[in-house]
Amino acid sequence: MIELKNIEKYYANKGVKSYVLRHVTTNIKQGEFVSIMGPSGAGKSSLLNILGMLEEPTYGQYEFMGEDVVSLSERKRVELYRNHIGFVFQAYHLIDEMTVAENIEAPLLYKKVPGSERKSRVADILDRFNMVAKSDLFPNQLSGGQQQLVGIARALVAHPTIILADEPTGNLQSVQALQIMDLFKKLNEEDGITIVQVTHSEVNAVYGNRTLHLLDGVVNEERNKIG
């Protein structure tokens, strides 16, 4: 569903180009669970931002579900966010002034889902994540792991086809991190949701069925999980 051809990204500063990504070419198929790995500054987040259309590549071709999305209009891009892409962030990025339930409900509002259906979908997902009791709490009343669960619930509630996760466990303790990764694996295997995650933990990377190793902006090796 994702095709990248020769993606380049650099920042020009006083005539000197500092490259972030060079000649990145790869495909991500429906139902895959891809981990992007690499050391700090390798361009992982930039690649993910390009995948999420938050940044534009300097050169190169990017097709999302068969559509060229480089320099897509705002309207088209927002449509993709509403219907196909869910984001999960390292810092959770819940809206502090909204309760758990309201945070989860927000994407449905933009998708113009009718009120009764919104309520039932939010209730379902809270139930599924065992967070019904927390629905009226504010983010700062939750632990990090719980916040990230809300973040994932918010990404899932709109029924996306792909989840883009930027170091989803980066701020979590190891036990909570494992839970989150298990959840991702389950979502991938049972619901068939495509997942792309950025991580620099080898442990997390192996949850995926493919890993892209990035070093200084270049995809260094692609490794498919055996079995």
Partner: peptide
């Protein structure tokens, strides 16, 4: 600012 960013990736238009 964060709220704006989050809302945008959740599917809000700038006009919204």
């Amino acid at each position: 600012a964060k709220e704006v960013g989050v809302r945008k990736v959740l599917g809000a238009y700038q006009l919204n």
